[in-house]
């Protein structure tokens, strides 16, 4: 669901078609379809837009409009791992901005970007519902609380190094 690209498959039009069809019975199927495509491929490829539009009887512009409205949907592949770092008020009160600065200074990556080796995408998120344990982050769908510099370094190094 919000996992990184660890299990993402290479885009394949037939498979995308099957994913779309599997959701057509739903009322208001567009968001579930876009989520399912991103879950499978790690992003929503431009080639999938006409497919979705045809299946739902929408114009391509409408599908594109929805795709771009929501912050979750990516239109390009992400790094193999995705770190979402919370930058909302509670985490601000506990120093999340210094973690963001540290990421830039030590690991050369800013929110919205990916590390030079393409292994770790960093994204900003506004609240992960872990505000009593701020600062919070989420790595490939797993929540992390009371994040400190050392812990962040370990996460980044693991994501970029030994782990698949």
């Amino acid at each position: 669901m919000t996992a990184g690209q660890a299990q993402a498959a290479i885009f394949d039009l037939d498979e995308a078609g099957r994913i779309v069809v599997a959701h057509l019975h739903l009322d208001g199927a567009l968001l579930p379809i876009l989520h399912a495509l991103q879950e499978r491929f790690g992003y929503v490829p431009a080639d999938a837009v006409p497919l979705v539009a045809d299946a739902l009887n929408l114009s391509r512009a409408e599908v594109h409009g929805v795709l771009t409205f929501y912050h979750d949907f990516r239109r390009a592949p992400a790094g193999r791992h995705v770190l979402k770092i919370c930058r909302a008020e509670s985490c601000q009160a506990m120093g999340c901005e210094s973690l963001v600065e540290h990421l830039a200074a030590e690991h050369g990556v800013t929110p919205g970007g990916v590390t030079a080796d393409g292994r770790l995408t960093v994204e900003t998120v506004y609240c992960l519902g872990n505000c009593a344990l701020s600062p919070a982050a989420m790595l490939d769908g797993e929540l992390i609380g009371r994040l400190e510099r050392d812990g962040l370094d370990a996460l980044v190094n693991a994501a970029r190094g030994a782990r698949p």
């Binding site: 669901m1 009322d27 208001g28 199927a29 567009l30 968001l31 579930p32 876009l34 989520h35 739902l56 409408e62 929805v66 409205f69 929501y70 912050h71 979750d72 949907f73 998120v125 506004y126």
Partner: peptide, 22 residues
């Protein structure tokens, strides 16, 4: 149903639009 990272979708009419696929 899963939201998609839009704060405004907590507003009830925006949420309904989102549920309808817009």
């Amino acid at each position: 149903r899963l939201g998609a990272g839009a704060y405004i979708c907590g507003e009830e009419t925006s949420l309904l639009e989102s549920l309808e696929g817009r």
